[in-house]
């Protein structure tokens, strides 16, 4: 019983957080906000030209380029007169 509890504790304290970080790493990418330099986390299915928001400074950013796991973020273009549906 003592042994089982010890294993459960190791799993909870050590293994689970590691696995969570591994899974997080697999399903996310990171970029740097071009306005405030904060790290911006993006999902792996993020596309180039997608508009996202920086969680820190709330700026609208565009995903300029994704290459070899590196993400380049720029300030999003402003809405123009002919934009719409």
């Amino acid at each position: 019983m003592f042994f089982v509890n010890k294993v459960k504790k190791i799993d909870l304290i050590i293994i689970e957080p590691i696995m969570k970080n591994v899974i997080y790493f697999i399903i996310t990418m990171k970029g740097i906000c071009s306005i405030c330099d904060a790290t911006v986390t993006l999902s792996k299915n993020t596309e180039e030209s997608e508009i996202i928001s920086c969680a820190d400074c709330k700026s609208r950013l565009v995903v300029q380029k994704i290459a070899k796991g590196k993400v380049i973020l720029e300030k999003a273009p402003v809405v123009e007169e002919d934009w719409g549906q």
């Binding site: 596309e47 180039e48 030209s49 997608e50 508009i51 995903v63």
Partner: peptide, 27 residues
């Protein structure tokens, strides 16, 4: 044919993937 990729375009990409339809993204 796209400019900014919106949530709408992402849904189209997902739908195409499910249907095994190819997509060429043309900015």
């Amino acid at each position: 044919l796209h400019s900014t990729i919106r949530g709408d375009e992402k849904l189209i990409l997902e739908a195409a993937k499910k249907r095994k339809v190819g997509i060429k993204l043309i900015d």
